[in-house]
Simulated assay, not measured.
Amino acid sequence: MPIVQISLIEGRELEKINKLIVEVTKTVSESLDSPVENVRVIINEVPNTHWGIGGRPASEVRKSK
């Protein structure tokens, strides 16, 4: 049973998360010749204050852009 874990900075629309789950499931199923029912996708949403980019929290990096 393939298990895929994806970490994202929180804040995306639920529709986009759902589409990601569908597309990743489809790709893994086709790539590994595994039934769709056996593929598991786990989305971990992380606050931007807990996500580091270049030694700084993403919340700070995104303010400067």
Rank of each mutant, 00 (worst) to 15 (best):
K26S: 13
R40W: 12
V4D: 00
P2G: 04
I6R: 04
G54M: 09
R62L: 15
K65H: 10
N48Q: 07
K65R: 13
A58Q: 10
R56Q: 15
S7M: 09
P57E: 12
P2M: 10
P35M: 09
N18Y: 11
G52R: 04
E30H: 06
V28P: 01
L20Q: 11
I53N: 05
T27K: 06
I6T: 12
K19Y: 05
E30Q: 14
G54C: 10
E15C: 05
V24T: 15
T49Y: 02
P35W: 09
G55Q: 07
S31R: 01
L32D: 00
G55D: 03
G52M: 11
V28D: 03
K63L: 13
S31K: 03
V46G: 06
H50G: 01
K63W: 01
R56G: 00
S59T: 07
S7Q: 14
I9C: 11
G11H: 06
T49W: 00
T49P: 00
R40G: 02
V36W: 02
G11F: 07
N38T: 13
D33V: 10
V24R: 04
S59G: 07
W51M: 09
L14Y: 01
V36C: 01
I21F: 06
R56H: 12
S29G: 04
V39M: 10
R12A: 10
G52V: 14
E15N: 14
I9K: 03
S59C: 13
K65A: 09
N18W: 02
V39C: 09
E13V: 08
V24I: 15
R12Y: 02
